[in-house]
């Protein structure tokens, strides 16, 4: 996997990441479409995801929970907007029980196959700065906090050795 482009637009509140994979589009699509494969990458190693429902159709839902080191369960869900296998997927990413009034953000996935690789363009759109703050604060995106901790750990090990 190689990230070939990143665009953070602080005015439009969008994040676009373009990554290349050495695989066919059909194969890359499976990491989204197969719940067992999705479980292996959605959460960081210390917060593995368990997918409960996986209805990848327009209007359908994917629900999951991530289990933390202390056994705490963090629930999340996707509300599917559109699906076009193996080319594109759009969904609202939300946390907590689906009917709670917590902010969501939209995620768009687009796959383009070339003879040698598949390019995945990921677009995250946020409705407001307040929503972004709340998403970061609710702990749903624990992957980020954890990533920071992991980096600190790696740095400490590197310096200590």
């Amino acid at each position: 996997m190689t990230v070939i482009a990143v665009d953070r637009d602080p005015v439009a509140l969008t994040l676009t990441i373009v990554a290349e994979f050495d695989a066919r589009a059909e194969r890359v699509w499976q990491v989204w479409a197969d719940p067992r494969q999705l479980e292996r990458w959605w959460g960081p190693p210390t917060y593995p995801a368990t997918v409960v429902d996986h209805d990848l159709t327009a209007g359908g839902r994917v629900t999951y929970y991530m289990t933390g080191p202390d056994g705490e369960k963090l629930h999340g869900w996707w509300q599917i907007i559109s699906v076009d296998p193996p080319r594109s997927l759009e969904f609202e990413d939300g946390c907590g029980p689906p009917n709670e009034e917590l902010p969501t953000y939209s995620v768009g996935v687009r796959l383009i196959e070339t003879p040698e690789k598949t390019t995945m363009t990921l677009t995250c759109r946020f409705a407001s700065i307040a929503d972004m703050e709340q998403l970061l604060a609710t702990g749903k995106e624990e992957g980020m906090r954890l990533a920071v901790g992991q980096i600190d750990g790696i740095l400490a090990t590197a310096i200590g050795s």
């Binding site: 990458w41 700065i129 995106e141």
Partner: peptide
């Protein structure tokens, strides 16, 4: 906004790395 987008970028880069491992 830029700093918060960077946090989400970090989250998604981690996921993309793991997708690469699965593939």
């Amino acid at each position: 906004a830029h700093a918060m987008l960077a946090e989400f970028e970090r989250l998604w880069r981690g996921r993309l790395d793991r997708i690469g491992d699965v593939l």
